[in-house]
Amino acid sequence: MSAIRGPRDLYSGLLFVVVGALTVLIAINYPVGDAARMGPGYFPRALGTLLMLLGAISVWRSFRLQGTPITRWKWRPIVIILASVIVFGHIVQFVGLALSTVFLIFAASAASHEFRWKEAALIGLFMAVLCVGVFVYALRIQLPIWPSFA
């Protein structure tokens, strides 16, 4: 096989190098100043360079040291969980807390391979009542309960 022995080291190292490089690149526009009068670009450049260096060591190590392989990602839960939360954030103001909670519970439950329609509906209902009670009435967080167009 290939010379890559530590895939975790390789990918995390690359990630650090890229982020470090971007940090330094963007900081080019910020004034550096000198040690006595540091500009807003001084610390970012130092950190970005350090991060690149650390990432590079990790990449180098991935060819030298045997590491654990990366477990295959299951995309279904990743996509469903994140997407349902993002959608929730975008609809809650218009649809209201009650319905968006039911939506989030329903959508998120579908990420599990043990998904059951009736159960999800029941929990959704229960959580909607609970959340409206706790967040809107008890904690007085400013959120509409019902759709604004209703």
Partner: peptide, 16 residues
């Protein structure tokens, strides 16, 4: 499977 959607809802409302 019952627990995590509930946790998620609390997180989402909290952060919003």
């Amino acid at each position: 499977r019952v627990l995590y959607p509930a946790i998620l809802v609390f997180c989402a409302i909290g952060v919003y």
